[in-house]
Design a protein around this nucleic acid. Sequence first.
DNA 1: TTGTATGCGTTATCAT
DNA 2: ATGATAACGCATACAA
Lengths: 351, 351
Amino acid sequence: MVTIYDIAKKANVSAMTVSRVINNTGKISKKTEAKVRKIMEEMNYVPNQMARSLVLQQTKILFLLITDITNPFYTTLSRGAEDAANRSGYRLLFGNSDENLQKENDYIHTILSTRVDGLLVAPTGDASLPHLEQLRRHKVPFVLIDREVPGMDCDVVLGDSKGGARTLVEHLIDNGHRHIAMVNGLSTASSARLRLQGYQEALLLHSLHMPDNYVFETSYKLHQQVTGNDMPVLPSLEAWFDQLEPRPTAIVAGNNVIAIEIIRMLRKKEIQVPEQISVVCFDDFGLYSEIAPFMTVAAQQAYQFGYMGMQTLIERIQNKDHEAQPWRKVVLPAELIVRDSVAPAKDEQSQ
Amino acid sequence: MVTIYDIAKKANVSAMTVSRVINNTGKISKKTEAKVRKIMEEMNYVPNQMARSLVLQQTKILFLLITDITNPFYTTLSRGAEDAANRSGYRLLFGNSDENLQKENDYIHTILSTRVDGLLVAPTGDASLPHLEQLRRHKVPFVLIDREVPGMDCDVVLGDSKGGARTLVEHLIDNGHRHIAMVNGLSTASSARLRLQGYQEALLLHSLHMPDNYVFETSYKLHQQVTGNDMPVLPSLEAWFDQLEPRPTAIVAGNNVIAIEIIRMLRKKEIQVPEQISVVCFDDFGLYSEIAPFMTVAAQQAYQFGYMGMQTLIERIQNKDHEAQPWRKVVLPAELIVRDSVAPAKDEQSQ
DNA sequence: TTGTATGCGTTATCAT
DNA sequence: ATGATAACGCATACAA
């Protein structure tokens, strides 16, 4: 490995002079600068970030930890975060926790030991609290996106989960549906709790009462990796659906991936969407809504989640005393996009 | 920051003893070990990876550089790479070059200066050669995925682009199409060149001759970020299409994203797919093919790309003298999945 | 079983 | 404008 000393020796200067050239710090004569630069070129010198961080105590590297890299909501969010980071002269590295607390733990450990300057993180759920506390103890600035964690005061960028869910349910009610079930994410995630509240509020507002078992909880993430063209249907989802009485005329999905699970289950049972059952969900489908303008959704501004979250993080970092400012909470609206997965309820069903 | 010395002092031992506890190296008494561990817990000690790497000259961190994080082919590939890396005790960090040579350059620089142990990289194209040469000079082991780069001998995991393209075109020919155009990725990517070859071979084999302007090149990546629900149609694509004579009855897309651009353009012009024009493409759509089983594709084994690539990389790293072994080239097959974006050509068109 | 001295590659401080 | 020295946090070689 070619070091700053190799350059120095070849240029007949001290290592300090080379360092000054690299960092544009201090005064140096045009002549030596040119000479040093030339030799750095020749020897393909690249500064060792490890050594540099060790003394500088900063890396100019930020980290984004998402929960599902195969979900277009998070990949679009990533692009927003990337743009914001680059615009401020930071590099951004990504990690994927896969909705898995253990993986999240591993990443937190890597992040802690790598001493990145800051972290944008979508926590897997409330159980992430210890991880966040660890970050806080180690004074790693972080911003939460998409999900809050009770017990942790910090900056956070959220979607309007409650409002979005209400909008979805009201859209179904407007279409005459009176038996509306919900398949939600695990209630260990704040977004799932709020979406459930939104669902319940909308029903209450219209004086509708659903059977107790009309709400089902599952993972926000596909239960199995997509490897080919066929994939088993989530068994528990099907079992839940089979025992519903009466059968719902519409289902609200907690996110886009859950919607896919539902559609697959219904297709397996040869139930038509939307003719026999309407389906709506949170989050849009990125590119895919373009070629398959099918699902009616409450679209969240994924790119903005990343961009705003990253900006908040950077501002927090660049403020000298990190934790002095009051914590910020940004809530981004969800927008109803009506497509073709909802049909008017039939009369005998809407009573 | 709490260091190994802080632990040592509190435990009344030397820093070396603490280091030995951390790394399970050398002999230490149960009692001191227990004491040291307890204090590390109490003080929330996390080893400084920077300092450690500086002396160990390795990080146990690998890197995956992809070209489009919003493309499900690459995100599924990422999941495969992640699993393979974790299985071997490595952490994996991601970067997204966005099909942008400058961004790729920035990432290579970060990677070089961060001294990761190895790199799995999908190069943006032939112009990536200098970046790879730089990696080689700095003895950073790397494996190419998805695209080769002429002039660089190295391990590489590719898809059967030529065969896949031939299969797609033959499927169209089997359906009676005689006027088949192609919208391909930039020919600066090896995959695009091979897909073009496959297209041409299939035509030749069936003694079909297309007008010269029947092949159009564009980016593999969406030309504009998806931020909302409407997005302008790629102007040059539309201009190209408008001047085709005769108008093709089928179009082959170089990848899934290009297929989306084509569908959008045709929809804008109110041309029905597949009734008026059939469309097929490379790469599947991940989750989305599940809810919109529409596009006929040559599906590549995205997960396997990542998994095999990562395994190849790790084996290369763990072999003492990296570059002694002969380079490996893995070619993964593409599978035709017939769906609904192809219709038989009408008689007057198929002549 | 445990400790001391040294070096990894860089920058800050202080000197010249 | 340039250089010498110490320090960042850790692990290796060698000693005790």
